Simulated assay, not measured.
Amino acid sequence: MNINTGDLVANASESERSMFYKKTYLHLGGAVLAFALIESALIYSGIAESFVHLLQGNKWSWLIVMVLFMGASYIADKWAHSPMSREMQYAGLGLFVLAEAIVFMPLIYMALKYAAPTVLPTAALMTIMLSAGLMFTAFTTKKNFSFLAPAITIGSFVALGLILGSIIFGFQLGIFFFAAMIVFSAAVILYQTSQMIHEYHSDQYVAASLGLFSSIGLMFWYMVQFLMSLTGND
């Protein structure tokens, strides 16, 4: 049975589009809340501290974590786009939220332990404001930002190469890299919002919410690192 039988959102009726956007953002809000709860549990249970010590003990540990996260992300995206089962779609979203929380553990722990207490709330507020502004731009202009796809693909490989190089050779990426990645993540948010408007079907709200959650998470990740570097806590 194929459950993805809805019209393209761009071609759907006004009521169908409204319901799709409502469900997408409700699922996005649920994913953010679940992420916050899981992250809090990992931090305050002591798991995050142990995880940080594990990563510090072996430079290859973070590389292994990255590979596992990329694998989990690929599987989660496939599940979230499953045309056969709504349960599989929710499993994909849940898997991605869990994987994201695990990857964020060291960063959140370090920010809480060593950075100024304003770093995390400031990063969250700035991410929310920028994301909202970018989504508003995509909705009001009604422009299809699919032309950003090649630049995002190339940028992803360049960023991945630099990150892998920093892990293997031990050099610091620095504040300019973090700033560039915030700009890059802004392009990804524009692209994901455009995809939601122009390319998704009206019953693919779970997959749409995963795409938005992923791109917003990317911006938050680099916003935290940028602010930590800016205040000398990198």
Results as ranks from 00 to 15, higher is better:
Leu63Phe: 15
Ile47Gly: 15
Gln89Glu: 09
Ala179Ser: 12
Leu218Thr: 11
Phe176Thr: 12
Phe104Tyr: 12
Glu49Asp: 15
Ile182Asn: 10
Asp77Cys: 06
Tyr200Lys: 09
Ala115Cys: 06
Leu93Asp: 07
Lys143Tyr: 14
Met126Val: 13
Gly170Gln: 02
Ile64Thr: 14
Phe213Lys: 00
Ser85Tyr: 08
Ala132Gly: 10
Leu125Met: 10
Met135Tyr: 07
Phe220Gly: 09
Ile108Pro: 11
Ile154Phe: 12
Tyr44Cys: 08
Arg17Gln: 15
Tyr74Asn: 11
Phe171Cys: 05
Thr140Ser: 13
Ala186His: 03
Gly46Ile: 08
Trp62Thr: 14
Tyr90Ile: 09
Met110Glu: 11
Ala159Asn: 03
Ala124Phe: 14
Phe145Val: 07
Lys143Met: 12
Phe176Gln: 07
Ile189Val: 14
Asn2Lys: 05
Leu125Asn: 01
Leu210Tyr: 03
Tyr44Val: 06
Ser194Pro: 00
Ala10Ile: 14
Met129Cys: 10
Asp7Ile: 00
Pro117Ile: 09
Ile167Asn: 05
Leu164Pro: 00
Thr118Ile: 12
Lys59Glu: 13
Ile108Ala: 13
Lys143Leu: 09
Val188Trp: 05
Leu95Glu: 01
Val224Lys: 00
Met135Ser: 05
Val158Met: 06
Asn4Val: 14
Ala208Thr: 04
Ser82Asn: 14
Ala10Cys: 08
Arg86Gln: 12
Ser82Phe: 05
Met181Gln: 12
Ala91Trp: 06
Pro83Arg: 01
Ile43Ser: 12
Ile75Phe: 11
Val67Glu: 05
Ser73Thr: 13
Ala180Trp: 06
Lys142Phe: 06
Ile47His: 12
Tyr90Lys: 08
Phe147His: 11
Ile189His: 06
Phe157Thr: 01
Thr24Cys: 03
Leu42Met: 08
